[in-house]
Computed example of a mutant assay.
Amino acid sequence: MIKPVETPRKITVKGSPFEQGAAHGRLARPLIRQNIKLMEEVLEKSSFDRSEFWCRLKANFEFLTRTEPELVEELKGLAAGAEIDFAEILFINIPLFFVFNWLPQECTMVYFGPRATADGRSYLLKNRDMGFNLEHVILTREYGDNRSVIELNGAGIVTYPGNGLNSEGLALATTGVWSRRIPITLDQSRSCHVLLNSHLVLEKCSTVDQALSYLREVPRMNGLNLILSDKNKAVAVELTRDGMVVEDCVEGVLFRSNHYVAEELTHLNQTEEEYPSTYRRYERIAEYVWPRMGRLAFQDMLLLAQDHKHGPVNCICRHGTADAPSKTIYSSIIVPEDEQVWTTLTNPCESMLAASLSSLT
């Protein structure tokens, strides 16, 4: 009897950038090949001009080669370890498909700070929602200078983790902002990151203030939302192509879905009629957290991650329909004080089952 090959979902890599990539590629080889096949199938169904796509991808690779040579070495290691053509690794790591709105990520993130929690700890939740089943891994990087980073990302992808934590205590989560009203200039592919590379934030920065300085300078084609926290502060960042608006964590909680909240950026959003899901999820978090301020706990993060109010499409734990296929493909909670990242690589309601002698809500 042939036993199925089990691919680890928790991967630890160390060494040079090439060695880290090679270990990732070797350990997650079946998942990486599956992700490439999946994205190629999506590309085949798209009406976008193929020659222009590959021209833009090549231009962005040349930008990365000039500005982030160690990242390029890691991508080369990935290709070698996975025994996959380098062009296919570039295809899944240079996220042009998101910019062209083929594969939007519709995610939710929530931060509880020490002022808001019963135990004085902080918690950062990220639900990543996609319209396709991208296979993910939990990647721990160990660097030679005793630094380490934990990232949640698609297998074979190192350029846009959805959330992560480094050993200096900097935690990060992201959500995309998807709107036809946001201008995108394709010619910038030769001089900008397609999306913010959140891996580089965790690798290069130790504090929220350092991350904010990095975000002010790094060139990018598009914006997104971030929550950043360290041992002393937390902020929500609404990032655009040309600037950013920062919200300090004054009340003890922060949360975002897939639209801008800052008044000066709301003209870029889709309307509630056009994109009800992002507004319903945001409203649901506010409805849940504000009455519980000062009493919030890890269990509340679990309950929010599994929340189905306004479902199946407009809820935090999403299951998708034929007309709105986005579903939650992972849920992850960072506990910075304990240097822990808790993750389920599926709908959280299906893998975190709770029983209680009193109401869970």
Results as ranks from 00 to 15, higher is better:
E70D: 14
V5P: 00
V5G: 10
E83N: 01
M39K: 12
S46F: 04
E74W: 06
V5Y: 13
S51C: 03
R50E: 05
V5A: 14
E19Y: 01
P30G: 01
T7G: 01
K37M: 08
G15M: 09
S16P: 11
L38I: 04
L78T: 11
W54G: 01
E68M: 04
R33L: 08
N35C: 07
A28Y: 09
R9C: 08
K45S: 07
I84V: 15
Q34L: 11
K37A: 10
K76E: 11
P4W: 01
E41S: 14
L71P: 00
M39L: 15
A22S: 05
R56Q: 12
E70S: 15
L75H: 06
S51W: 09
A23V: 12
K10A: 11
G77F: 11
P17D: 06
K10T: 00
E6Y: 14
F48A: 10
E41V: 03
G25S: 05
R56H: 15
K10C: 04
E73H: 13
L78V: 13
P69Y: 09
L38T: 08
Q20D: 03
K76D: 01
W54C: 00
K14T: 14
I84L: 04
V5I: 08
P69D: 10
K76W: 12
D49W: 12
K45H: 07
E41D: 09
P69N: 08
E68C: 06
K37Q: 12
N60F: 01
G81R: 06
V42F: 11
D49F: 12
L71I: 02
G81E: 08
L43P: 01
S16M: 06
L38K: 04
E41W: 05
H24S: 05
E68V: 05
E68Y: 15
E6T: 11
K76C: 10
H24N: 07
T67P: 00
I84T: 13
R9K: 15
E41H: 11
I2F: 02
L38E: 10
E74C: 14
A28I: 09
R29A: 14
E41C: 00
V72S: 03
R50K: 15
P69E: 07
A23P: 09
I36W: 10
E44Q: 12
R26W: 10
L78F: 15
I32Y: 14
P4Y: 02
E41F: 03
V5R: 08
